[in-house]
Write a protein that binds this DNA or RNA. Structure first.
Lengths: 335, 335
DNA sequence: TTGTATGCGTTATCAG
DNA sequence: CTGATAACGCATACAA
């Protein structure tokens, strides 16, 4: 690997001049610029990113932290950020928090220590206080899918409660009255908010809240299936089940079929997130659209604008959850 | 941010000593070690990764390049590598190649320039020659899902042809004779190899190859649906369709239902990769298991062993595609 | 066991 | 417009 010194030597100038042409500094004559370029080509020179980063305190990288690298949801988020930034020669460094506060902090520190110019965070275990403090720090931060009361300008989030409300409202609108709910882990704020939206919708329609119709699960298919089995054991009647996310809904579909329930005629199912899963299932899964791709893009644009001074010319619209009606939700057939 | 100098000053020793305790060098007295630790705590010292990387030419990072960040397949791969390495305090830097040779090279250079200690590559556009040259380079490389004749020791791959063979063989074993095949893009080696396996299975069973039963598609759901529609237009009879991957198979399911074909009784469908998708569909999708998670782990372990001298004690087994029988494949009912 | 001095490859601040 | 030269924060022979 050749260095800036060798280039300077071959071009017959000082390293500072080479550095200037490297960074497209205006004040450099066309002639020397050409000499330097020639030297760089001859030596097949490639600037050392690390050295550059050490000297400039920047890295042309933004750090992205998500809970898990597998999972389509985070893949979409990460992909959206990457695509947006890559178009402007910026790279991303991805790491995972695994829903654990220590690992999340560890990941965040790693990204900061790597001189990331900005951070895009999807965290769920770390406290609001920690995040608030982080926002005061030197490295710009964008927080996705979480609303920080103290610094809303750093957050790109969705109204999860509204989403939960919309889902259950749609179910009620189709005549269902006995509606089961399988939630994600209540310690996760989004799971809780979605459930609160569900409750609100019930309340608004004058339907009494029945705890025996509610099960807390994990955000996974298997857990959804187990939760549904539990629901059946309780021998309570219901004609629809609203789920905390699409994976749970998918588990419910399997479990329902295993129990001899035919879908969607005997049971309506609604998911949340509107991931690819929704289009894979049969019947296709009605779901609440979570515009995670758009939100990822928005995060990327925000950083492009605020950190790199690149005008993306696109205004970030507000993100509203919308209900996507599909075959898994059917009107209640009275009999 | 405090530096190693400030720590040394506060601890009353030289920077080299601080550096030693930092890197857990054996030759340092317990007393000074404690002094240094105290100083580090007082100053809330965190070593500068970049400076460390510049001086040591290492980074405790391995670079991972995949085609796309969304897509469960790559998510699983990346996640497997990450989990494996994270357990040993190593991080990963992920970037995407988007199936484009320029972007793939760009990504690889980026990772090398960032001083990655090793690379895990899933590339599809770049030439064998380029990769062979890369393998000669300074940075250790592990190539996933691609077999380089000149340097097999760098590759962790699966016998795609064998997989394709197995799939079609399973279909034949259930009495099917008119078997359609929807392939991925033939310019991708894995798509082509899978198709070759299909052909081989047909040949071995004495079934003539009929080009009108074959369609080349992209590796996506939509493309699979279109390909199936095309198949129907051709008015050729078939009782089963083998697909280049699960997404295509999923598109076929939708398109078949749209065409009024009932599944699985009237048409058997087989996918490839055995992704999560296979468990989401109804009927559940028979597929060829692609142990991408295990392969990702193997890549991680290989690097742990060979680059970081960490003995993972687990032998990397050979990876064989295995057919996973599920409801979407049914015996041909003669009538 | 500990300290000194130099290098890692750039950027950036001054002079000229 | 160009050239020395000091940071940047740490690792590492070499010396003590």
């Amino acid at each position: 690997m050749s260095t800036i010194y060798q280039v300077a030597k071959l071009a017959g100038c000082a390293v500072s001049t080479v550095s200037r042409v490297l960074n497209e500094h205006p004040n450099v004559s066309a002639k020397t610029k050409e000499k330097v370029h020639n030297a760089m080509n001859q030596l097949n020179y490639r600037p050392n990113t690390i050295a550059k980063s050490l000297a400039s305190q920047r890295s042309d990288c933004v750090g992205v932290l998500v809970s898990e690298l597998h999972s389509g949801f985070f893949g979409t988020l990460t992909g959206a950020v990457e695509t947006q930034l890559r178009a402007h020669k910026k790279h991303i460094i991805v790491t995972a928090g695994h829903g654990d506060a220590t690992l999340e902090k560890d990941g965040i520190e790693f990204l900061i220590d790597r001189n990331c110019d900005a951070l895009v965070l999807h965290v769920e275990a770390v406290s609001d206080e920690y995040l608030a403090e982080l926002c005061q720090g030197k490295t710009p931060v964008v927080i996705v899918n979480r609303e920080l009361p103290t610094c809303p300008e750093h957050c790109i989030s969705l109204d999860n409660e509204q989403g939960g409300f919309t889902a259950t409202q749609a179910v009620i609108a189709r005549g269902h009255k006995n509606i089961a709910y399988i939630s994600g882990p209540m310690r996760k704020h989004d799971a809780r908010e979605r459930w609160e939206g569900h409750c609100k919708a019930l309340h608004q329609s004058g339907i009494a809240y029945d705890p025996s119709l509610v099960v807390e699960a994990k955000f996974t298919q298997d857990s959804g299936a187990e939760a549904f089995a539990l629901l059946l054991q309780r021998k309570v009647a219901f004609s629809a089940v609203v789920c905390g996310n699409d994976e749970i809904a998918c588990g419910v579909m399997s479990a329902a079929r295993d129990a001899g329930i035919s879908l969607p005629s005997e049971l309506s199912i609604v998911g949340f997130d509107n991931t690819n899963i929704a289009s894979y299932t049969y019947p296709k899964l009605a779901s609440v659209d979570y515009p995670i791709f758009e939100m990822g893009q928005a995060a990327g644009r925000k950083i492009l604008n605020e950190v790199y001074d690149i005008d993306t010319a696109e205004k970030d619209s507000a993100f509203e959850p919308t209900f996507i009606d599909r075959a898994s939700l059917q009107p209640l057939n009275e009999r």
